[in-house]
């Protein structure tokens, strides 16, 4: 698959939230206002892109040569936890303003399914290092797209009369369902039509 094909696949066709349901907890939890949604999206994008490359390297250069591939799950989650911690420290040192924007979201990302999910999908699909990086970046961008759209919808919903039992989380899920319906228009035949396979 071409590089553009990978990006389109993970941003639209296999959108992490609306199609694969990865990262639903922050999607529902952090999407109440658009500012924090953008912060969360950027933090996730950053971590998925870096984690994809690091997990690929760990798998290819450490686990495969020593025949330890059954340790995939346990090593990936440790790598991701360590990476998130390191990213937090580096950002705090290098750019206090970026840390102020992303800081509170970073600890939440370790237990975000999207990060571990993309690392495992990269291995399952047999991507090389550059493809893994692009897939991770695109998965994060897809997450950002969905969470930012969702936060705008929820800001509007605050002003809308909604039946009391549907207020908050239920209406958020139903809105997400309607968004997922719209995303069904992005089918894998799109790639064939654009000659990207």
């Amino acid at each position: 698959m071409s590089y553009i094909g990978i990006i389109i696949t993970y941003v639209f066709i296999q959108n992490f939230i609306l199609v694969q349901f990865m990262g639903l907890c922050p999607f529902i939890g952090v999407s109440k206002n658009s500012e924090s949604a953008i912060g969360m999206g950027m933090a996730v994008t950053f971590v998925t892109a870096v984690a994809s490359v690091v997990c690929y390297a760990v798998y290819t250069y450490l686990l495969v040569p020593f025949d330890l591939t059954y340790l995939q799950t346990i090593s990936f989650i440790l790598v991701i936890a360590a990476l998130v911690q390191m990213v937090e420290m580096v950002i705090r040192k290098m750019s206090p303003s970026l840390y102020k924007a992303l800081g509170i979201f970073l600890p939440l990302i370790t237990t975000n399914c999207a990060v571990l999910g993309i690392a495992i999908i990269n291995i399952d699909e047999g991507y090389n290092m550059l493809e893994s990086f692009l897939a991770g970046l695109a998965a994060g961008l897809g997450f950002t797209l969905a969470i930012v759209l969702m936060s705008n919808i929820r800001e509007k919903l605050e002003m809308t009369p909604v039946r009391r039992v549907f207020k908050g989380v239920p209406i958020a899920f139903i809105s997400a369902g309607l968004m997922a319906l719209a995303f069904m228009a992005f089918d894998s035949s799109l790639l064939t039509n654009l000659h990207l396979v």
Binding site: L18, V19, Q20, F21, R163, V165, F166, V169, P170, I171, A172, F173, I174, A176, G177, L178, A180, L181, F183, M184
Partner: peptide, 19 residues
């Protein structure tokens, strides 16, 4: 059975449990 259905079912069930 598709992705959208899962989110819709979850929304309605959550509303039912709140009610």
């Amino acid at each position: 059975t598709l992705a959208a259905g899962a989110l819709l079912v979850m929304g309605y069930l959550k509303a039912f449990f709140i009610w």
